[in-house]
Amino acid sequence: MSDHKHEHDAKRPDPATMTEAEYRDYMADPHAFHPEHHGAGEHAHDGEGHHVTSLFQLRAVLGILIFFTVLTVASSRAEIWVADTFDLYIPTLVNVLIAMSIATIKAVFVVAIFMHLKWDNRLNLLVLLFTLMGVGLFIGLTAMDLGNRKEFYDWKGDQIVAGGTGGSAGFVALTRSARGKDEPEVIPTSLVEHARNRAIQKYGEAVFAEKLAQKHGHHDPMPARTPNRSRATEGLTADLFDTTVPAGGDH
């Protein structure tokens, strides 16, 4: 680098004498700058060299975005319909992948056209890519830790239990808006159970059961399509291969 710089010093252009367009080029890369290579018209015009997106383009993008929104909603409804009609359960992973791919396509259109990144300075694209890399590392490595806590002892990982394995409900003194009250309400059980108990107390068992049926009666019990915690799910779910007993949930 600068070891041999002084040999070139004489040839270095003087920015003080440049036109504005030349100067812009020069600042972009002073070492590569050669005024004779600078053609008029490469850069811009009447002072503002920024891309003007045509209205047609914007409207087209809006149309595409709406189309993909409809598509993603449709795919999610279709999945439920397929499950109800054909007892065919698509694995969650596939759904996630489809929905996220569609969202990514939408995002690319927004970023490229609406946010002008297609015509923008490459540096801004670089900023975005580095950011996405950071996001990926953050989520990826954190999630990886969660999945790999039991290398030495089988029972070490995957044991996250509300209330803690050590104490469960007994010691939990969760308080509902405890602050500022003399006698905070202590919730001795899990939050869900506590809410249910209160409702049963309020309505009585029979009415509660009726209300519960009202809430959940209109749909089939949710199939337990869990990427289950004792073994990883492989391939499509049960009912594709074995139609004897539908794997219904307990609720």
């Binding site: 509300a162 969760l174 308080t175 509902r176 808006s177 919730i187 899990s190 939050l191 869900v192 159970e193 809410a195 249910r196 209160r198 409702a199 049963i200 509660f208 209300k211 519960l212 809430k215 959940h216 949710m222 609720h251």
Partner: peptide, 16 residues
Amino acid sequence: PGVLFDYPYAQHEMEP
């Protein structure tokens, strides 16, 4: 959210 949860018809422990 969280400890404010008070929905009696929840179907799973972790809905809060």
